[in-house]
Design a protein around this nucleic acid. Structure first.
Lengths: 189, 189
DNA sequence: ATCGCTTTTTGCCATTTGACAAATGATTTC
DNA sequence: GAAATCATTTGTCAAATGGCAAAAAGCGAT
C-alpha cells in the first residue's frame, strides 16, 4: 500500500486525511503465478495497482495465436479502459507471470475517492497519459527494427524483466519466434 | 473552421458564444506540399487542427534513416506533447505530404480559450486520449505481422491514404523496405 | 538421485526480406 | 514534347527469419 501512495504522490499532492481515505478504501490482494487478473469478455471489477510481480497482457490474433502485447511490472496502475466511469469488458487477458501483489479498489470505492479528493481526477489522468506515451514510444520503435535490435532494445528498457519472463513471451512481444530469439541471444554473447 | 467546430462538438457541448470565441481565435493557414509544420528541435508555436491534406510524422533513427512514425489525415488535432501548458520542442518532423489546410491557434489564444470555456480542458483531454489509444492499437498490431499482413491492415485502416501517400513512406511506416512493399503489392493483385 | 514436465537450444530447410543496382514508369519543367 | 527529376518495379544474391522436430537443459516433486 505504501508503494501505491508513494507512486500517487509523484503526480500530485495529498494531505494526510486524503492519504488515509485511500488507505481505507484499498485492499491488498495476491495473485498466483498463471492466474488471470482480467479475462477477455469478463467484466472488470477492480481498479488495481501492481506492487509486486509481473503481469502479461495478451490476446489471440485471427490465427488463434497468443500475442503478448506488453508487460506490466511493479508500480503500475492497471486501469480498465481509459476511463473509470463505465463498466469495462476487456478484449485482452491479463495473467500473472510471477506471483503478484496488488492494491485494488472496487469501482464504488474508487468513485468515492474521486468524489472526495479534489484533483484525484487530474492525477489519474496524468498517469494514464504517461502510460500511453510510454506504450506508444516502446511499440513504435519495434516496427522498424530487426530481431537483434528489438531484443537489445528490450533488455535495455526492461532490464528487470529479462530474467523473470519466459523467452516465449518476450519473443511474442517482440514479434519474432521463440527459436529466432534463442539464436539472437546466442549471437549476442 | 467549420470542420474544427464540428469535430470539437463530438467531444462536448458548446454554446454559440463559446463557438464564436473559438472562431475568433483560430486562423486558417495553408501548408504546401513538402513544407514542414514542425521541425525537430524548433519550438512549436501553434496548436493546429488539420482540415485538409495529409501530414507525415518522421524522425531519424540512430543509423540516420528517416522513419515515418505515422500519418495525420483530415480532422485531426495536432498537439505539442501531451499538454498545452509548456513550451514544446519536438524530436520529430511533421511535413506535408499534400497541400494542407489547417486551423491554428497561438499558445496565448489557446490559453484564453482554456480560461474562458469551462470544460475545454476535458474536451481536449478526451481527444488526446482517443488519439493515444488509436496510435497504440495501430502500431501494436504491426509488430506481430509479416509484410503482407501489415500492408493489408494498412489499406483497410487508411483507405483514403493509400493513393495519396508515396510508397516509400508507407513502407517506412510499416517497417519494411520499399522494394519489399512493391513486391507485396504485386502479389496481392 | 531420478522421474516427469516445461523451457530453451539446435538442426535442417523453405520462405521472406534486405541490400544494391538497373530498368521502367510517371511527373514536372522549360 | 524533350529533358530532367522523382517514384516504382524488377532482378540478383545474401542474410534473416519461420516452421517443424528433436535434443538438451532446467526445475520441481518424490
Amino acid at each position: 500500500m505504501d508503494k501505491f501512495i508513494e507512486y500517487i504522490l509523484q503526480f500530485g499532492n495529498l494531505n494526510k486525511q486524503q492519504i488515509d481515505l485511500i488507505r481505507n478504501k484499498g485492499t491488498e490482494i495476491e495473485l498466483r503465478k498463471d492466474e488471470y487478473y482480467w479475462e477477455a469478455g469478463k467484466t472488470v471489477k477492480y481498479i488495481g495497482f501492481l506492487t509486486n510481480g509481473v503481469i502479461r497482457v495478451f490476446y489471440y490474433d485471427n490465427k488463434g495465436e497468443e500475442i503478448t502485447r506488453y508487460f506490466i511490472d511493479e508500480n503500475h496502475l492497471i486501469l480498465s479502459g481509459n476511463t473509470v466511469d463505465e463498466v469495462y469488458t476487456p478484449s485482452e487477458y491479463l495473467s500473472a507471470i510471477t506471483d503478484c501483489t496488488l492494491v485494488v479498489f472496487t469501482r464504488k470505492d474508487w468513485k468515492d475517492i474521486l468524489d472526495t479528493i479534489i484533483g484525484w481526477d487530474s492525477i489519474v489522468q496524468k498517469i494514464i497519459t504517461k502510460h500511453h506515451s510510454e506504450k506508444i514510444a516502446r511499440r513504435s520503435e519495434l516496427v522498424s527494427q530487426d530481431g537483434t535490435e528489438r531484443y537489445l532494445d528490450f533488455i535495455q528498457k526492461f532490464p528487470t524483466l529479462v530474467n523473470r519472463v519466459p523467452l516465449s513471451y518476450i519473443a511474442s512481444y517482440l514479434g519474432i519466434t521463440q527459436s529466432s530469439l534463442s539464436r539472437i541471444r546466442k549471437n549476442i554473447r
